[in-house]
Design a protein around this nucleic acid. Sequence first.
DNA 1: AATGAATGAGAGTTCATTCAT
DNA 2: GATGAATGAACTCTCATTCAT
Lengths: 211, 211, 211, 211
Amino acid sequence: MALNTGERVRASAVKLFAGKGFHGTGIRDLAQAAKISSASLYHYMGTKEELLAGIMRECLERLLLAASRLPGEDPPERLAALVALHVLTHATQPDRTRVVDHELHVLSAAARRGIVRLRDEYEDLWTVAIEDGIRAGSFHDGQPGVTRLALIEMCNGVSRWYSPRGPLSLEELADHYARLANRMLGGRENDFSIVVGQVRSVVSTVWKKPL
Amino acid sequence: MALNTGERVRASAVKLFAGKGFHGTGIRDLAQAAKISSASLYHYMGTKEELLAGIMRECLERLLLAASRLPGEDPPERLAALVALHVLTHATQPDRTRVVDHELHVLSAAARRGIVRLRDEYEDLWTVAIEDGIRAGSFHDGQPGVTRLALIEMCNGVSRWYSPRGPLSLEELADHYARLANRMLGGRENDFSIVVGQVRSVVSTVWKKPL
Amino acid sequence: MALNTGERVRASAVKLFAGKGFHGTGIRDLAQAAKISSASLYHYMGTKEELLAGIMRECLERLLLAASRLPGEDPPERLAALVALHVLTHATQPDRTRVVDHELHVLSAAARRGIVRLRDEYEDLWTVAIEDGIRAGSFHDGQPGVTRLALIEMCNGVSRWYSPRGPLSLEELADHYARLANRMLGGRENDFSIVVGQVRSVVSTVWKKPL
Amino acid sequence: MALNTGERVRASAVKLFAGKGFHGTGIRDLAQAAKISSASLYHYMGTKEELLAGIMRECLERLLLAASRLPGEDPPERLAALVALHVLTHATQPDRTRVVDHELHVLSAAARRGIVRLRDEYEDLWTVAIEDGIRAGSFHDGQPGVTRLALIEMCNGVSRWYSPRGPLSLEELADHYARLANRMLGGRENDFSIVVGQVRSVVSTVWKKPL
DNA sequence: AATGAATGAGAGTTCATTCAT
DNA sequence: GATGAATGAACTCTCATTCAT
């Protein structure tokens, strides 16, 4: 848990960007949080914007990496896995995910492109899962495109309120969201606790290595 | 539709705060967008923060005003009305609602209190509707508190992607979301188009007067 | 002689850029010299580089304006007039001319282009005068291109040492340089005092209006 | 020609100071050009200002050394030798000489004193040669002090434009300047090619050893 | 000999805000 | 009602320099 300076810079940035926004966070705030001088910051980062982009990219890459290791035989389980992945990531990495979800508009067009590509790649996984489920007759929904957006936004919200010190365990949280998602798509009521357990281990593996 | 100067200031602020964030928007940006000098801005606003708080307060007050005029006899219809209100407001006032949903952290503790009170008052309406539905046996859900949060976040997302120039009409949008919400709560599949139509007229009345 | 703020800014910049160089002059130095805050500077200038480019452009434009009003029937008189113009301008505006002569390299390529164009336009007048003199048999020189460069550099130097409080009057200075130039080009020994007197009045007219 | 690190540092400094000025050249620019880290720079130099002063001193010392070996029996030949020395030095060492001629104002008073003493010692040689020539009746000029300044500035200019890849050989260049100088002082038209040749060999000897 | 890490000071520029006109 | 002028504070970022390794 003892972070080196470079890690401390990034960790501080994640926390501050999440709490006060990119533009609300000054370079001196970052320096103070990382316990170095503002000049020294620049040994560990390029510009402030590059720091932001790096944080976003890394978060999305871990999300995609985790997604590539997801269980899920049939579409309902596949979607449950995606929901669990998204919810667990947002619950355990609320700062990072808030930054990804809220600060995209800050990036220059050039930097944004790369991030948006990753995000689109990730969202495509949802699209495919939903369409597969409808084609297979497991899901019934008149507006799958809209529903996908609704699903993702619903899950994004988790990072804004979930607390591990609250009454809900991570598994209960993910399980409940998987049920909600399944209901939204008209799936048969089901228990996704096994899938959730598997996803939870994927998520914790993917986020284990130093950030 | 010809706005006077004060309205133009507020309208510019709404657009800019939504697009670039409060801290990303400079007083000079506001002045330029409102087509007056930055010094003149201060005839139409207090501080920049008060301008933001005013925008938020007004938006929430209109939301509450609309909520007080909502139809809905039984809980499922009542909830459908709340969902439609939320979705239609977010679809027709995407800039305002984005500001309300994203910039709360900017406010000082004192200013935030007032806004949070309004927001809580509004969210309580959802809590009541959901609990009523469960008590009446119309809804079945193991985590109504969580589900309420999920519902609201899901609906918030609309302001980030809905376009009236897209394939979906406002009614179709609201109707679909009402169905999704109903499913999430385990309600009986239903058609909420009448409620949606009524809510739509409430929303457009509430937002008619000069902003 | 009472300068307004904008003029004071420019006058301070001229003096400081000449004395310490562009990069050696800080924005806070400028502000202090102009007796305003560094923030207020920016009401009177664009960037520091634009301030420099503006100073250079204005100086060259006045030089060209004066050149367009020069006397000089035959080539030797014409050249004497150019020499007198150059010398008198460098002697009476040593700061401005030093900036023009020394700080070109700090300008960005884009800004430099405009300045170089003016400078080339001005130097062309010398080329023409020398070539005319050679063609007319008044001058005899094997390397007129090189000699032109030598002449101009020789005259540039005046801004580095001439003092009106020294033993030499402006007329004597200009007259002597006109003779030197004439000798360099192998012209017949001559008295250019009338031309010098005329040029002096052109120079003082051109620099009279507020800077 | 393979420079060791210390030589590379100085050579890089010469080129950068000449091209962008002392204040326009950062310690990081120097390090990059010398292909070492900026910390390592400080093994090969004192402060940046000392580096500059060292470059200037060395250049002037070589100039004085060369001047002590100059040919020239009578004053016109003596002056021709000085002009050739100055021109050839500026043509073959344009970066060094530009630094000497342009960056004096950067030095602190203490450091400047030493440099100015060398420069004055060198310029005295010119004064003596000119006065000797006038006394001997070889030169005729009403303002020998001014003419000396004009001569030196004229020759300084060479470093700003001469290119060995241009049409003029070093000998032709120096020869032409010697003629110009001789004319400026009213000397009898003469051929200085022998003197120039001798000076050229002095100059190349003086600059041969590693810098 | 070489450098990554570190920093106080300062760079140019913009900030939100005030006020006399 | 409108604004040019003004500013202290703050912005992001770079400066020249030092030092432990």
